[in-house]
Design a protein around this nucleic acid. Sequence first.
DNA 1: TATATTTTTGAATTAGCATTCAAAATTTGA
DNA 2: TCAAATTTTGAATGCTAATTCAAAAATATA
Lengths: 205, 205
Amino acid sequence: MERLERKKREFNMRRAEILKQAEKVFATKGFHNVTVAEIANASGFSIGSLYQFFEGKENLYTTMISEKLDLMYADIRKATNAAKNITGKIEALIDAHLQFIEKNTDFCRLFIKGENAALSEVMTSLRQKIIDDYFKHINFIENLLKDGIKKGLLRALPPHEMASALFHLIRASSMEWMLVPAKESLRSKKGFILDIFLNGVKKYD
Amino acid sequence: MERLERKKREFNMRRAEILKQAEKVFATKGFHNVTVAEIANASGFSIGSLYQFFEGKENLYTTMISEKLDLMYADIRKATNAAKNITGKIEALIDAHLQFIEKNTDFCRLFIKGENAALSEVMTSLRQKIIDDYFKHINFIENLLKDGIKKGLLRALPPHEMASALFHLIRASSMEWMLVPAKESLRSKKGFILDIFLNGVKKYD
DNA sequence: TATATTTTTGAATTAGCATTCAAAATTTGA
DNA sequence: TCAAATTTTGAATGCTAATTCAAAAATATA
C-alpha cells in the first residue's frame, strides 16, 4: 500500500512549508518577539497542528537555523571545490560566503542580534551545533591553506589560526555591512578581504 | 548638613557592591538562567532592596555590561596611547585587548553566548550602546592606522576596513581561546595577530 | 452511505519569575 | 528615650505566552 508513502510525503511538504514561513517570521523579528500563534498563522496551520510537526517553538527555531546553516556551509564548500588553484579557491570561498549573507541578510542578522541565546537545553544544543559546524568549517579552510603551504605559495604559519583569521576577516566585512545601511554590495568587499589576508597592511615587505 | 552626603556615599557603595556580585552571577550563568532572588542573595540584600538601586533585572544587567565595557575600552586606549611608535601602538592595542579577555573570560563569554538578546526596550538600547562603542573603538583604531599610512609605514588601504580587520583578527583568536579548553595563554597569540595583520599569509611579497 | 480512524483546532490551562507593596525594622532628630 | 521618617523585607500578585487536549472536522475503509 502506497498510501503511507503519500502521507509521509505530504507530512514532509507541510513540515517544509512551516519551516519556510517560520524562517521568514523569525528572520525579521527574532526568536523572542515571535509567538507560536504568529507562525501558525503565517503558515496557514492552527497552533495545535504545529505541535504535530515540531516539539515546540524552540525545536522549530533550532531546526530552521540548523538546516539553513547546513545549506550555507554546503554552498560555500561547493563553490570552493569548484575552483582550480589555491588563490582561486580562497577567492571562491570568500565570494560564496559573502553571497550567502547578501541573499540571507535577515537570517544572518539573527546571529549578530544574539537571538540564539541559550535559555534551554534545546537552545544549548543548537549553540553546540553552531560551534561544531564552525570548527568543521575552519577545518575545511585549514586543509585548503595547508595545500597552499605545501605548494610553497603561502607562509608556513599555524594553519588553524590562518583559517580562523580568514573566516573572521570575512565576518568583519559582513558584520559592518549588516550593521550599517549598506552603501554598496557586500560582495564588492571580496577584493579587500583577499588582499589584506594575502598581503597584510605593511608597506614594502 | 553632611548627613545627605554620607547617605549618598553609602547608597553608591551598596549599588557598586550589588553590581559587583551581579557581574559574578551573570558572568557564570548568563542573563536568563539567573533570578533576581539569586542576585539579592549573593549581594546580601533582599529582593525588594534591589529595586531601590535598579529599575529591574534588565536594568541591572545592562548597567553591569555597560560599565564593564567602558572599562575595557578605556584600558585598551590607555595602553595604546602609552606606546610611542605605530607598531608599538598596534602591539599594545592587541595586548591590552587580549589581556582584558584573559582577566574577564566569563564576562566576555556572555557575548559569544549571545546573552544580550534584545527582548525588551532596555536590552535593545544596550545592544545599540554596544554597537556604538564598537564603532567608536574602530574609529580609534582607524586614526592610529591613518597615522601609519601618512608616515608611509602602512599601505593606503581604506582605514575603516583595516581597523575592522584588526579588531576582528583579535576577536578571532579570542573566540577560539574562549571556546576551547585553552592550552596556552591568550596573550601568546599577540605575535601571530600582529604578523598576519602586517604581513599577510602570502609567501615572497 | 455509514462507521472507524486520523488529523486539526484554538480556548483553557499552566508555569515561571519579575515586580509590587504593606508591614517590619532601622535610623534619625528632639 | 520616643515617635516620625526612612529603608528593608519577601510573600503575594500579575502577566505573558507556550503547551495541552477534548471536541470537531476530515479522511479512510467497508
